[in-house]
Write a protein that binds this DNA or RNA. Structure first.
Length: 313
DNA sequence: CTGGTCTCCTGATCGC
DNA sequence: TGCGATCAGGAGACCA
């Protein structure tokens, strides 16, 4: 389940392959994974279209015939920036993947094999790219695939860099850089449980269910504590905990719980250091009390009832 | 504006 | 072995 650290790991594993590469072809299998700003009313909506058979489509908004100049991330969102100025914004959602590899060379053997074996299921779009970095032994033609079984993810096509800036301005600071002051400002009027607030991307971008629980554990805060009730010292502890947890997870190349991998298929190892996530009933790593579990903000939440401060209600 | 609930979607897992 | 129920959750829609 990609949260900020997983998306950052994807970004880092994609960048050496994509930056400088030019998209030479694309194949769109499901149009309804694409969201365009032009869709009325209310701005963004899915294109409800019958799934199409794979076919080449002239889509400049999907960066066809453009060169990728940068990959940028804010929170859980990954932006492919093209030399044209266009931006393709990717949400991985729950089960989304961006996978890059060498484009299989067509051959009779490969064709027959491909005809027998179905393509990777849930591949909604594929881009072919030519890379300028080809050396002997290195393929010069790549393919990038967006694969998302549950389709909670999607693609946003943005005409300009300014549209990206505008869109990202509605998100809070990236979790890698969250400060006590920023938390204080955005939580001051929030009576919701701090757990719910941490999942709100407008408050801090990139924290999902796993890292919210881990951050609250590190900061010794009860997930039900009203957000606005936190003291300055607690806010400082929380901001520090978020940065610590997120940076450690990035260093570990993300958490592989079920099927998350980076763009080259490599799993992360951050799950090995989780203190509370998915550990309900097991002893607290700090005090050995059994960890408690409940649903907060529609999410399974795990905490230590002994060493995470009770909410003062 | 805020917060809570619902919804989307498929695969893994579990109890019977 | 099969099958229905349950769970996983990011984030927008919707309502009080």
């Amino acid at each position: 389940m990609p949260e900020g650290p997983e998306v950052e790991t994807v970004r880092r594993s994609l960048a050496p392959w994509l930056v400088g590469s030019r998209i030479t072809a694309l194949s769109l299998r499901r149009r309804d994974i694409i969201v365009t700003p032009a869709d009325p009313p209310g701005g963004f909506s899915r294109q409800r279209t019958i799934p199409t058979r794979p076919r080449p489509v002239p889509r400049p908004d999907l960066l066809l015939d453009q060169t990728i100049t940068a990959l940028e991330r804010h929170g859980k969102q990954l932006a492919l920036i093209a030399d044209s100025g266009r931006v393709l914004l990717v949400h991985l959602g729950m089960t989304g993947k961006l996978v890059v590899d060498a484009l299989p060379v067509p051959s009779q053997v490969a064709s027959r094999r491909a005809a027998r074996a179905p393509a990777t299921p849930h591949t909604h779009i594929q881009w072919n790219l030519s890379t300028p970095y080809a050396t002997p032994g290195t393929p010069s033609t790549l393919r990038l695939r967006f694969i998302d079984p549950r389709r909670f993810g999607g693609l946003w096509t943005l005409p300009t860099r300014d549209d990206l800036t505008l869109r990202w301005s509605s998100l809070g600071p990236d979790a890698t850089q969250i400060t006590p002051a920023a938390l204080a400002a955005s939580l001051a009027s929030r009576s919701a449980p701090i757990k719910a607030a941490l999942l709100d991307q407008a408050i801090v971008a990139g924290v999902g269910n796993i890292y919210a629980d881990e951050s609250l554990f590190l900061a010794r805060l009860h997930p039900r504590a009203p957000a606005a009730s936190l003291s300055p010292a607690q806010l400082a502890a929380l901001a520090h905990a978020i940065r610590t947890v997120i940076h450690a997870a990035i260093d570990a190349r993300g958490s592989t719980i079920r099927d998350y991998t980076d763009s080259r298929g490599q799993p992360g190892t951050a799950q090995l250091t989780h203190n509370v996530y998915a550990r309900a009933g097991l002893p607290c790593p700090r005090c050995a009390s059994p960890l408690a579990s409940a649903t907060i903000a529609q999410r399974t939440t795990v905490w230590c009832p002994n060493c995470q401060t009770q909410p003062c209600v």
